[in-house]
Amino acid sequence: MTATNKLELIIEKSLSLPGVKVSREDFLTSVFSKRKDAAQLKEIVEKGPYGAGVTRKEIDNIAKSIIHKRTLTSTSISFGAGLPGGLAMAGTIPGDVIQFYGIAMRLAQELAYLYGHHDLWLEEHLDTERARDKIIVFLGVMFGVGGSTSAIKFLSSSLSKQVLKKLPQKALTKTVYYPIIKKIAGYIGVKLTKETFAEGLSKAIPVVGGVISGSITYSTMRPMGKRLAVTLSETLVMTDEEVKEEFYELRKEFPEIIDVEFEEIEDIEV
């Protein structure tokens, strides 16, 4: 099984788990209904928290709380999966790995919505492939895969739309996402092979195996969430110069994506 096929299987199986797909409106309502009045809540749903006047500091604090919650959830699930008779295998991928990525994807969506991204699952004429692509890039940031952070920062700016207007023959999902996703797939494929081997050994001793799985999950999920939260938080206050820096970082990492100079797209109306 190739790295790309393995990643596709992980995404497919994980997204099929209950609760992995997150409704933006439901999530924001649950987070802010006790913090804001009805009028403010409506504006948050319409414009996103930061656009509705919620401070960056408050958003960051909420993000920390969500990361802590999801970390505890993933740890308890991983412990159960490490015991005999735990989650069933999904092809050649252990069930607890599917659960881990499912929770990571849920966390990625929640953080994205908290920092102003649109609902991935309620867009007009929903493109499921594009939604999956965005989630994979979020995972890339969480795992620290080179180029993913610059991609999120740049694509969160209005200049990404300018690039599309400058390069009308190149579809965003194919030119920007594809090479990044290919790199992330390779990284996750290698990581998954190592994890699968390690977890297979740990489960040879049943109860200890569960503890080991839970410990590994806790030490992994929290920094993953923090890495994505920091990246998304920075997109809220990026200057034009910082956007320019991310543009060239992205082009340096993936020269096949963008072949124009920054100055060539600055004067195009969005």
Results as ranks from 00 to 15, higher is better:
residue 45 V to S: 02
residue 46 E to F: 04
residue 47 K to G: 02
residue 47 K to F: 06
residue 49 P to Y: 05
residue 51 G to T: 08
residue 51 G to Y: 08
residue 52 A to W: 00
residue 52 A to I: 01
residue 52 A to K: 00
residue 53 G to T: 02
residue 56 R to M: 07
residue 56 R to I: 08
residue 56 R to T: 10
residue 56 R to S: 14
residue 57 K to H: 09
residue 57 K to L: 10
residue 58 E to N: 06
residue 59 I to N: 07
residue 60 D to R: 13
residue 61 N to D: 15
residue 61 N to K: 15
residue 62 I to F: 10
residue 62 I to M: 10
residue 62 I to G: 04
residue 64 K to E: 15
residue 65 S to R: 12
residue 65 S to I: 11
residue 66 I to Y: 05
residue 67 I to P: 09
residue 67 I to H: 11
residue 67 I to E: 11
residue 68 H to A: 15
residue 68 H to S: 14
residue 69 K to H: 14
residue 71 T to G: 15
residue 73 T to Y: 07
residue 74 S to A: 15
residue 75 T to P: 00
residue 75 T to R: 10
residue 78 S to F: 03
residue 79 F to R: 05
residue 80 G to K: 10
residue 80 G to F: 09
residue 81 A to V: 04
residue 82 G to M: 04
residue 82 G to K: 03
residue 83 L to G: 10
residue 83 L to M: 14
residue 83 L to P: 04
residue 84 P to R: 04
residue 85 G to W: 01
residue 85 G to C: 07
residue 86 G to S: 12
residue 86 G to R: 05
residue 86 G to T: 09
residue 88 A to P: 04
residue 88 A to E: 13
residue 89 M to E: 14
residue 89 M to L: 14
residue 89 M to C: 05
residue 91 G to L: 10
residue 91 G to N: 10
residue 92 T to V: 12
residue 95 G to N: 07
residue 96 D to C: 05
residue 97 V to H: 03
residue 99 Q to M: 14
residue 99 Q to N: 14
residue 100 F to V: 01
residue 101 Y to R: 07
residue 102 G to M: 02
residue 102 G to I: 03
residue 103 I to Q: 03
residue 103 I to N: 04
residue 105 M to A: 09
residue 106 R to C: 09
residue 106 R to N: 12
residue 107 L to A: 07
residue 107 L to D: 04
residue 107 L to E: 06
residue 108 A to W: 01
residue 109 Q to F: 01
residue 109 Q to L: 02
residue 110 E to V: 08
residue 110 E to C: 06
residue 111 L to H: 09
residue 113 Y to F: 13
residue 113 Y to I: 04
residue 114 L to G: 05
residue 115 Y to F: 15
residue 115 Y to L: 09
residue 115 Y to D: 02
residue 118 H to L: 12
residue 118 H to N: 12
residue 118 H to T: 13
residue 119 D to P: 06
residue 119 D to I: 04
residue 119 D to E: 09
residue 121 W to M: 06
residue 121 W to A: 03
residue 122 L to V: 11
residue 123 E to H: 11
residue 124 E to R: 08
residue 124 E to M: 07
residue 127 D to P: 07
residue 127 D to G: 06
residue 127 D to E: 14
residue 127 D to M: 11
residue 127 D to F: 10
residue 129 E to Q: 14
residue 129 E to P: 02
residue 130 R to I: 13
residue 131 A to Q: 09
residue 132 R to A: 11
residue 133 D to R: 15
residue 133 D to W: 08
residue 133 D to E: 14
residue 133 D to C: 13
residue 134 K to D: 13
residue 134 K to S: 12
residue 136 I to M: 09
residue 136 I to L: 07
residue 137 V to Q: 02
residue 137 V to M: 04
residue 138 F to I: 02
residue 138 F to V: 00
residue 139 L to H: 07
residue 142 M to V: 06
residue 143 F to P: 00
residue 143 F to Q: 03
residue 144 G to E: 05
residue 144 G to M: 04
residue 144 G to L: 04
residue 145 V to H: 02
residue 145 V to I: 12
residue 146 G to C: 02
residue 146 G to A: 12
residue 147 G to F: 01
residue 148 S to E: 03
residue 149 T to Q: 13
residue 151 A to S: 11
residue 152 I to V: 15
residue 152 I to S: 00
residue 153 K to L: 08
residue 155 L to G: 02
residue 155 L to N: 09
residue 156 S to A: 13
residue 156 S to F: 02
residue 156 S to R: 03
residue 156 S to M: 01
residue 156 S to W: 00
residue 157 S to T: 08
